[in-house]
């Protein structure tokens, strides 16, 4: 296994059809590094939900990934509107996404619950009008 690797990505917020490209790149890198496919899939799914959220709610943002042999940490930072009620946002089925997002198969209120489900650690810091930082941790 390689030494600690750090990756940085900018997520473009104006093109929903491209959402997921960053998650795809990270998945490929983790596979190339030889991580367990189950772990890679968990990272990919949780990160993908986060990336979709960034594009839907916050006009994009930045993602930093730190890869160590035992642990993968993904920090997703945006300068969007923030989350008014985090407890509600964590509830399955609760969504503030608009109709256009739902037509694309998202906005069903499963994003944060899925991110929690697939990660070994989820931390959300959010401030109205300032933005949201989501940190996901995975045991490799």
């Amino acid at each position: 296994m390689a030494e600690l690797m750090k990756l940085h990505y900018e997520v473009n917020g104006d093109d929903f059809t491209r959402a997921g490209e960053t998650s795809s790149k990270v998945k490929k890198t983790l596979n190339q590094l030889g991580f367990n496919p189950e772990v890679v899939r968990k990272v990919a799914i949780a990160m993908y939900e986060g990336e979709i959220n960034m594009v839907i709610h916050a006009d994009g943002g930045e993602i930093d990934v730190a890869i160590a042999p035992e642990k993968i940490t993904v920090v997703m930072k945006d300068v969007g509107p923030g989350i008014p009620d985090l407890d509600m946002a964590m509830t399955e089925g609760f969504s503030t996404a608009d109709h256009s997002v739902r037509e694309l198969g998202f906005g069903a209120g499963m994003g944060l619950p899925n991110m929690k489900k697939y990660s070994d650690g989820l931390n959300i810091e959010t401030e109205l009008g300032k933005g949201t930082t989501v940190t996901l941790e995975f045991n490799a």
Binding site: F16, G20, R41, A44, Y48, G105, F106
Partner: peptide, 15 residues
């Protein structure tokens, strides 16, 4: 019944 790129992305993430 959806035919947008996110369907393929979803499939990709889930193998």
């Amino acid at each position: 019944g959806l035919v947008n790129p996110q369907v393929v992305r979803t499939a990709e993430m889930m193998d």
